[in-house]
Design a protein around this nucleic acid. Structure first.
Lengths: 132, 132
DNA sequence: GTTGACTTTTGCCAACTGGCGAATTATAAT
DNA sequence: ATTATAATTCGCCAGTTGGCAAAAGTCAAC
């Protein structure tokens, strides 16, 4: 449908699924869409209908209509769409990192990024000192 | 498809089209959807995809996503809380954590879980000590 | 009534979606 | 290395969507 696509949608879907992390089978169980179809969708040999997009959105952590705009069913600035995180073109989370972290309780996960924030501010201070 | 449907969507579409007023041909010219398909859709023997709903929305005076909810592609009020449903199975990575971490270089990500590992082993030692 | 233009419906068809089961490929475990 | 097991992909299929062209159905002027 979108000739210039390079299949960014499918790649995004796989990226999100893997980083959660989920298998096709698990996502299938949550969404009611067959694993084979999900796989084909991610790799771009099938284009997902609005129905499937709706079913898989929440399990993947998307807003209900977020995937619609990404799929071109809704224009980018269409109403409502809470300007959520613009992480799409941004950095990627290493799958191994995701897997390890996912095994920790959410509070630990949050602590980890809290500590990361501290380290970053310390590093920043050090860098400023060194620059003097 | 839905035997009990009464086809409210199709009837609504026809009502709006006639009210404007437009012929199937005219709506077809504006939307790029064939008259025959529009006719079948209104009468309920075809169910419109998200693509055609998007195409005919504005010509009929609807918001772009308005027909999506009417067609059941979008729930009546998309609640914008992605935090509500989580923890499907065990081992899920918090989306916020994922977003934050994803913005760091992969080496930083790896360092982070390295540090996490250290902290865990320290905690384990402490716990054993306390248990004594 | 008949002709004419216009609107809607119908017959048929290609293309696509999405599911199921088998085959293949990765991942552990012994 | 070999086997077991889980994950992904492939082959094939039924059901739908949506377009085109031809067939009705409508309504006016003549």
């Amino acid at each position: 449908m979108n000739t210039t696509s390079k299949n960014e949608l499918g790649e995004l879907l796989r990226q999100e699924r893997v980083k959660i992390p989920l298998t096709l089978q698990q996502l299938s169980d949550m969404s009611g869409v067959s694993p084979s179809h999900l796989g084909r969708t991610e790799r771009g040999d099938r284009f997902p209908s609005a129905g499937v997009l709706r079913k898989i959105a929440k399990p993947l952590g998307f807003e209900e209509d977020e995937l619609f705009t990404l799929a071109g069913y809704l224009s980018p600035q269409a109403d409502t769409v809470s300007d959520t995180q613009r992480n799409y073109g941004g950095g990627r989370l290493d799958p191994y990192v995701a897997k390890v972290l996912a095994q920790e309780p959410v509070e630990v996960q949050l602590s980890v990024i809290g500590i990361l924030g501290m380290l970053k501010s310390i590093a920043k201070g050090v860098a400023r000192k060194e620059a003097d």
